[in-house]
Design a protein around this nucleic acid. Structure first.
Length: 220
DNA sequence: CCCCAGGGACATT
DNA sequence: AATGTCCATGGG
């Protein structure tokens, strides 16, 4: 039998299951050695990961670190063609080189992430709702919940909530404590769970949440 | 061969 | 407002 678990208890359950994910991943040692700002890696990787596997993003980040500098100033001062070649493994490389240029110019200095309005961030070409919220939450330490494809899929299956981006974002922000750590980890935990069980072709049979999910039938 | 991956801009209906 | 198409590499 299924019932509606509170959003916070879903978070607790996922946290118990998978542990802290420590998103957004950054190479702290690199930035300590080079003297660059770790927040700039978050901004760059947020653009690179658009509809792209993290594995491919990592290859691009390694290229930038090896042949350039993982910073927004490097993006600003480098030839766009050079950036294209470095980030090629991340896919959509011509498009993303352009987007990196735009955001690097806009977020100058990067400390702007602390006070920039979401509305203004969304005006930057290549920065949509999810990328904006990733930048605001993970680089700016600001209370913006990140909704992605996984989150939409999970919420539709688990709660039967469909909704557009803004309504889902609002749902999370209304039903969770105003806690940056919870926002960061919950988003990561949903992604982890969606990769393991709540896939496009869901594996409900072994899903740890099957008893509290409204769409998981015991017959699955 | 297929489908999918930590989306977004732009056009069409 | 909802849906379709394009962008592109790499892995399963």
């Amino acid at each position: 039998m299924s019932y509606k678990k509170s959003l916070l208890s879903v978070y607790q359950t996922l946290l118990d299951l998978y542990g802290y994910q420590n998103w957004w991943p950054i190479d702290a040692e690199y930035h300590r050695l080079i003297g660059t700002d770790p927040r700039e890696e978050i901004v760059i990787s947020a653009v690179l990961t658009q509809n792209t596997s993290w594995k491919n993003v990592e290859k691009a980040l390694e290229n930038i670190k090896r042949y350039g500098i993982l910073s927004l100033e490097f993006i600003r001062s480098s030839d766009e063609k050079t950036i294209q070649e470095l980030i090629r493994p991340a896919g959509f490389y011509r498009l993303k080189a352009q987007r990196l240029k735009e955001v690097a110019v806009f977020l100058n200095p990067v400390d702007k992430v602390k006070h920039v309005k979401r509305q203004d961030l969304l005006k930057v070409k290549g920065i949509g709702r999810e990328t904006a919220d990733v930048i605001l939450l993970y680089a700016g330490e600001r209370l913006h919940f990140v909704v992605d494809k996984y989150t939409q899929r999970f919420m539709e299956r688990f709660y039967g909530i469909k909704g557009n981006y803004e309504s889902l974002k609002h749902f999370f922000e209304e039903h969770l404590p105003k806690d940056i750590k919870i926002y960061k980890e919950f988003h990561a935990l949903i992604d982890e769970h969606a990769k393991k069980y709540c896939r496009s072709s869901p594996i409900c049979k072994d899903c740890p949440l099957k008893d509290v999910c409204i769409s998981a039938s015991p017959s699955f």
